[in-house]
Nucleic acid binder design. Structure first.
Length: 278
DNA sequence: CGATTATGATTAA
DNA sequence: TAATCCTAATCGC
């Protein structure tokens, strides 16, 4: 179940396996049979990821657009491919490895213009080196939407999913229910830094692992946990032990620590206390 | 073996 | 907000 880091990882692996090679295709599901037949025997010239969207560019200029959605999966196996799991919609067979696609929300043959239209709808992708945080920061500063909902809006920032939004707000120390525009400038900037850092870590490691700065140089505490997460589907906060709270935001569950993510930003330096009147 | 849940997103109401 | 697309793992009976 993929967020942006997964898609970028798969794009990287497909580039290594398939780009520059003649690819044989095979479509098990009828709905994509025609497209697959057209691609069969062509050289795959590029694979690239934007947010959660994957684009494969082929020799004749056509583009395969894939969005895995909630259930979609790419499966990689050696050549010749021996097994087939589920309803495989598209099979790409390269010189050494084959890639099977199943369950994707989107698998379509598009033109470069249609690809551009998809990209136009996306906010900056933190996993792309040229990502410009400007539009994201401006949206946060302007929007009354809860920040926890805005992080799932792919037009605001591309590639964040339900696990990352919860974890990023934890490492950023922000209550997900706070209206975006009420974040302080340093919290906005910090949030973008966290997004770039944590998704980049996920891309390198191959799965979601969030790390707060203060734990970077420290062995992680031996607390039972799923996949090294701070709050998502956790019962107690790994840092302070508080009971994790859960609610729905943008129609998805979100978990947060009421102590590490206070509703009001905690002041680094307490304001001078005014002498009591009278 | 059926019900439930899931790292997504669009469309209709 | 709800229904829908569609796959797979997990859990309860």
């Amino acid at each position: 179940m993929p967020e942006g880091h997964t898609i970028h990882r798969q794009a990287r692996e497909q580039r290594a396996d398939l780009v520059g090679h003649v690819v044989r295709t095979d479509a098990v599901q009828d709905r994509f049979a025609g497209a697959a037949a057209r691609l069969d025997g062509q050289v795959l010239t590029d694979v690239d990821a934007y947010g959660k969207h994957l684009f494969q560019t082929w020799e004749d200029g056509s583009v395969v657009h894939v969005h895995l959605g909630l259930y979609g999966k790419w499966r990689r196996q050696p050549v010749p491919p021996l097994w087939m799991v589920g309803a495989v919609r598209l099979r790409l067979v390269g010189p050494t490895h084959a890639w099977d696609l199943a369950g994707a929300t989107v698998c379509a043959l598009v033109t470069p213009e249609e690809q551009e239209r998809v990209l136009d709808r996306l906010g900056p992708d933190p996993l792309r080196p040229d990502a410009d945080p400007g539009p994201f920061l401006a949206k946060v500063a302007r929007s009354a939407t809860p920040i926890g909902a805005l992080l799932l809006d792919q037009a605001a920032v591309a590639g964040i999913g339900n696990v990352y939004r919860a974890e990023l707000l934890f490492t950023g120390g922000i209550d997900p229910r706070r209206p975006a525009k009420e974040l302080r400038p340093h919290e906005r900037d910090r949030l973008w830094t966290e997004i770039v850092h944590q998704l980049g870590l996920g891309l390198d490691v191959g799965h979601i692992v969030t790390l707060r700065d203060d734990e970077l140089d420290r062995p992680r505490p031996e607390v039972p946990r799923d996949e090294g997460l701070y709050v998502y589907h956790q019962e107690a906060c790994r840092v302070c032990g508080s009971a994790i709270r859960t609610t729905a935001l943008a129609a998805r569950r979100i978990d947060w620590c009421p102590h590490c993510q206070p509703r009001r930003p905690r002041r680094t330096h307490e304001a001078p206390v005014a002498p009591p009147p009278g």
